[in-house]
Design a protein around this nucleic acid. Structure first.
Lengths: 344, 344
DNA sequence: CTGAAAGCGCTAACAC
DNA sequence: GTGTTAGCGCTTTCAG
């Protein structure tokens, strides 16, 4: 193989003594080529290390087999797990991935990002940025003008738009119910930042589940964190003040829970005897914390896979001139019971 | 803006009553256009929401302003941190990122990956896969045939090839010396899998530093893990058997250290009194573990940034027909002292 | 200052 | 079976 001088179809044609069209037929596995001709051309292709230009093909076929993927916060575990799923499925379905990372979750000026992807003729777009604050406000204005299918990750389901998300509410119900099942009644919550849709869902589920169990919730029972470990520490300290009899705690993510653990050890609060703890997990190593942590486990890899599948479905459908109804897909997380929530 | 029907330069030209050439001059900010003409064309461009096709440009300019990035293991924190740096710097320098994730770190059949990127006319390639086993064996065979600059991340420096890596040896020296400074003499090590270059470096530095201090090292003083938490647990248990008097431990990554912590708590081993612990950190939340953990901190974001900078340097140089000597860049990690290694 | 012609690498549509 | 023509959307070259 010689990749060095990118051979062109013309060179191959000339070397094989045929027209470019015939070469084209060979590289596209078309039937109408005489066996010997095909063989001769294939030989030249191999010798020259000829590789068709995907660019030129995209231009003429008006199809690039490339997905635009917009993400944010790759330094965090969640988004990169999802991206992992995205690349895996894209590869499987034969699509390349053009990656764009937003500088912040709540980046608002997204038009240029969209344009940059569209300028490169992506066939579809995966919007893998969680719904935060107003960062979906553009959808109504602009989405209709985007000429390719767009599927949104981690966004509140709405009709007419394809979304794929973890069912955070269901997860929170699992968590809270589990704590209730352990006989806990004074269950606190450290939420994520409430401008995140996911945070609101988790908090709401906690509240709903307690209410359904006849337990009243008020603002002294929960504190808003910002996902970070240090915010978890602060939130926990506050909660100990405002909710003294608290006997269980549902923490909205792993990083905040990490510092809660540390605080408990430092203060001599025993887990789970004094305080049962459960969290929404990103790390997947919860079993190795001390004590081993009960978690709500959500499969972010799968999330990415499903999203790509959805967008490719839509691309293929559009290509066949079919209409596909946008789907709102929800993945249910699972409850993993370990030592932090159950007194043995 | 109407992205819906992708307007072409021809349509703009027609609508403005000029030739496509003049439109081209406007969108490329060339000087030779009469102010009124420019204005008129610009107006049409805005109305039509015209966006030049990067694809067509790439084709004719033989330059795509796109970087091919090959990564692996995005579900782990390290690689995605690095990717975060890569996308940030690529964006800053005006390059798009075509992402390719290998299914495993030691994927060997990389030719198709390379071809897929080259078919899309990437201007340069960032090989962001750590050196593991034989996964660099292709370099000598194939690299010369790749028509664009390639920069390798986390690879043993070698002349003639551009590499960017963390100085794992320096990091391990920092860690081990720190433990020696604390008066520890019986310092064990849990290494990563030794087919990883990084693991070997970390282990070697531990061994070198102890030897330099006149302390002999033998095979009962260290165990090989595989980066995972569960392997850390096993390794630690083994080490307690083979190295009973061990008073300090250098763990090659965070996940393995996590389970070491758990084991210590379970066995009643006091940290740092009985065992001083330090690790190579990925998580950056080490301060919130119990106890707060001393770490060797390496900046993987910066690693990604530097790599992109290097590859873009080479692209630009090649474009000016200059030769650039491949660089071997090493980033030095830093020692962060917290509670797990120092008796107060 | 502006336009016409040629062509980047490929394929669709048609002819033979 | 195979070749010819045209053109995807743009820029380069050169003429005016």
């Amino acid at each position: 193989m010689n990749l060095n001088k990118r051979a062109t179809i013309k060179q191959v044609a000339k070397a094989a003594g045929v027209s470019t069209q015939t070469v084209s037929r060979v590289i596209n596995d078309r039937p109408d080529v005489a066996p010997e001709t095909r063989e001769r051309i294939q030989k030249v292709i191999d010798e020259l290390g000829y590789q068709p230009s995907a660019l030129a093909r995209s231009l003429i076929q008006q199809r690039s087999y490339t997905l635009g993927v917009v993400t944010a916060g790759l330094k965090y575990v969640g988004p990169s797990r999802t991206l992992n799923g995205i690349t895996t499925m894209a590869e499987e379905l034969g699509y390349a991935v053009l990656l764009e990372e937003l500088p912040r979750f709540d980046t608002e000026d997204i038009k240029p990002r969209l344009q940059s992807l569209l300028a490169r003729h992506v066939d579809g777009i995966v919007w893998a940025v969680p719904e935060v604050g107003d960062n979906r406000s553009w959808v109504d204005e602009i989405l209709n003008d985007v000429p390719v299918p767009v599927v949104f990750l981690t966004m509140e389901p709405r009709p007419g738009i394809s979304t794929v998300a973890i069912d955070n509410h269901a997860g929170g119900v699992l968590a809270t119910r589990h704590l209730l099942d352990q006989g806990r009644r004074r269950i606190g919550h450290i939420s994520g930042p409430l401008d995140w849709w996911e945070s609101r869902q988790r908090k709401q589920s906690w509240q709903d589940t307690l209410n359904n169990a006849g337990i009243e919730v008020n603002d002294s029972h929960w504190v808003e964190g910002n996902w970070s470990s240090s915010s978890g520490e602060t939130a926990f300290a506050a909660l100990l003040q405002t909710y003294p009899g608290m006997d269980a705690l549902f923490v909205a993510n792993d990083q905040m829970a990490l510092s809660v653990l540390q605080s408990c050890h430092r203060r001599g609060i025993r887990i789970p005897q004094d305080l049962a703890i459960i969290w929404f997990d990103n790390i997947n190593d919860s079993a190795y914390f001390w004590p081993a942590l009960s978690t709500i486990n959500h499969n972010q890899h799968e999330l990415g896979c499903r999203t790509v599948r959805e967008v490719v479905n839509q691309i293929e459908a559009a290509h066949r001139d079919e209409k596909i109804t946008p789907q709102n897909i929800l993945l249910t997380p699972e409850l993993l019971i370990r030592d932090s929530s159950v007194v043995k």
